[in-house]
């Protein structure tokens, strides 16, 4: 999946499932959209479905520090490349 495809899917998830209003790539997820640890865990479940494989606990823990949508995209790209190699 390219970054543009990922971005489209993540935007769709954030607006439909997390009720985000006009999210921006560099918005602070917590301050601007009330995104918290519980949301991060719920989002990880959706990322697993998107990627088609389960994330390890270590990979999930790394996601708890995500701050922006760009961070989410970087995170998914890193996970994807780690699973491809």
């Amino acid at each position: 999946m390219t970054r543009d495809e990922l971005q489209e899917k993540i935007f769709a998830v954030l607006t439909e499932d997390f009720e985000f209003d006009k999210p921006g790539l560099d918005d602070n997820l917590r301050d601007d959209h009330g995104f918290d640890s519980i949301d991060a865990i719920e989002l990880l479940g959706k990322i697993e479905l998107m990627l088609g494989f389960s994330l390890s606990r270590e990979e999930k823990e790394k996601a708890m520090g995500i701050r922006t949508i760009n961070d989410i995209l970087d995170y998914i790209e890193r996970i994807q490349s780690a699973h491809q190699s």
Partner: peptide, 16 residues
């Protein structure tokens, strides 16, 4: 209440 830092793993486990 907060899953940041050292408590991230605990929260992931509990929610899971």
């Amino acid at each position: 209440a907060d899953g940041e830092g050292a408590f991230g793993g605990m929260m992931i486990d509990q929610v899971g």
